[in-house]
Design a protein around this nucleic acid. Structure first.
Lengths: 186, 186, 186, 186
DNA sequence: GATGAATGAGACTTCATTCAT
DNA sequence: GATGAATGAAGTCTCATTCAT
């Protein structure tokens, strides 16, 4: 990681901050728009983030990192089912609370290597937690590794379609996840 | 329903056919594009379908009608759980097989009254099937009427995110639905 | 003048009636629009009136005829100045009260021969009244024949720019005309 | 007033120059058209002038400024009538010589604040000159402040309807104004 | 590096006129 | 004659990306 000049770093921060605001507002990311709100030239934004996706993934990165962190902790829990279920809830909560994450999770192609790395990390953890739960006989055997991410995206999407008030989203998502988990138990 | 002149009807058909192709290809609908591919003037397309949504809903209409038809039959089945589960499978199958349906189902605002009518019909059937299954003690009581559509959309979305080959989609969707249904059983 | 079939005559009437309404509303004339409001096909409207101008002139024709009629009477009045001034007031009143007339009066090219004929008739009367008033020494000699129409159009336009309430327009126009007439007196 | 970058300023000039040519030709302003003739992208034109009106008013601005300047000088003249009459002549000359001015003068809503400012300035001067002339007993008392602009627009319009050759327009306009002024004298 | 003006493809839409039915 | 669907040129406007300054 090359370190940036101090002013460049400040601009980078501004851009990401503004982008985060836009994402939270639900406004679709547009690099021109970001530049204007950040009080910077478009060119500056393009220098830092060649595409909308790159910026979006950068915005989502901290959340992905947090998820990976939570996953590491989950791997240390004793009860395999609790560890597994708890991690999935984290995944869902994060997506429902952060539109950028939902988009990044659903994309098959990533713009940044860092994103791919983190996603793989999270997926690997999920795989491991699933394997343990399966080995403990806590989970039905027909759930494949590759199903975890899609299903979590599906639950986030269902919550979004339900389109309750923002405050209502988290409980809704958890209710959906609980139902699914009940179906997953052995 | 006013019947169209013969030539108008022919053009209407062409437009809808082309739109169906585009939808199946996954190309986003654009009225100009449709006009070009159909070999018609833009104005003709606009006359028949003032907005992209109107065209999309028209493309989806036959599927919605089929769903409503299936629903009527489901209401005549003896086993409340089978009737309910079978209907949900129809819903998921349809959405997975038809991107237009998935979009129309997820929209909260409809462009055509006919769409609203059909959606309400399908929803009413789902509600009734759910009520019967609940009364028969086959379904957990915490599933609300309003959850059915979001959950089916969520499963279709999960399947889409899984993005297996087209041939693989249907079994994937069914696997997801089965898991969910198991979680829904009382 | 070829007489129309009875149904054609009815359509002609409808079209002109609708057009008159549109003119009075201030809506710009569009043949499609006229057709829709008249409950007729566009083609029918086009058959009767090949251009917007033709229709507009047809709408204005009765007013032009009335003006010509008033002009004939004015020619019979004893006082040349009163005859002249009175006629100009008629011209202005008519234009202010009828947007179609204002447009037709300002056009240099007419669509219908009948319009040209009537305009020339009105102009000829104005010329004659002016000549008499001039001969009687009531009017300054530097007002040319060709100035009458432009000046009346100008007054109507000034009234329009002033854009008082409709009810206020007539008095405004008359005030403007009075001022001009005072300037025209010998 | 933010100063433009050099290249932006050059384009701004080109656009306004082209627009001025179109206005002088009598061609209705269209931003696409302007872009093509100026050899610029449409977007560039839209960046500088979001609407046709904004461009038209920009084209008219120098003339409005000149009028305001002449008005200031008129306020320093001794003879109230001469000052008043001379200013009106300026107004009419300007409108007859510049179609953009005629349009801007007739509009009740302005696109640019600068236009509103200048128009109010000119109107205020007219009002002041009229008040002085009235106080000196040179002008009939029934001419209201609000009549000045409409009347000048009316004269310009009358000249346009007269549609003499361009060379003939100025004398015609002056003749019409003289007549009106004679009618305005006390 | 930073800036932001310029670009122009392309989407959307309207409407006067034609012509098949 | 009447109908009204079809036409498509032409206008408006947006926006992702480039590149001169």
């Amino acid at each position: 990681m090359t370190s940036l000049r101090k002013d460049a770093a400040r601009n980078w921060d501004r851009i990401v901050t503004v982008a985060r605001e836009l994402v939270d507002e639900g406004t679709p990311l547009q690099l021109n728009d970001v530049a204007r709100r950040a009080g910077l030239g478009v060119g500056t934004v393009y220098r830092h983030f060649p595409t909308t996706e790159a910026l979006l993934e950068t915005v989502a990165t901290p959340c992905l990192e947090a998820l990976a962190g939570h996953g590491e902790q989950a791997l240390t829990r004793d009860d395999p089912w609790q560890a597994f279920a708890g991690f999935l809830q984290r995944l869902v909560d994060a997506q429902v609370g952060d539109p950028s994450l939902a988009k990044v999770a659903a994309n098959t192609q990533d713009a940044l290597p860092r994103t791919t790395e983190l996603k793989q990390q999270v997926i690997a953890i999920g795989r491991e937690l699933l394997a343990r739960a399966r080995k403990a006989g806590a989970v039905r055997p027909d759930l494949a590794d590759g199903d975890l991410v899609p299903l979590m995206c599906g639950i986030a999407y269902a919550t979004y379609v339900h389109s309750a008030t923002p405050a209502d989203r988290l409980p809704t998502a958890r209710r959906y996840l609980d139902t699914l988990l009940r179906g997953l138990r052995a």
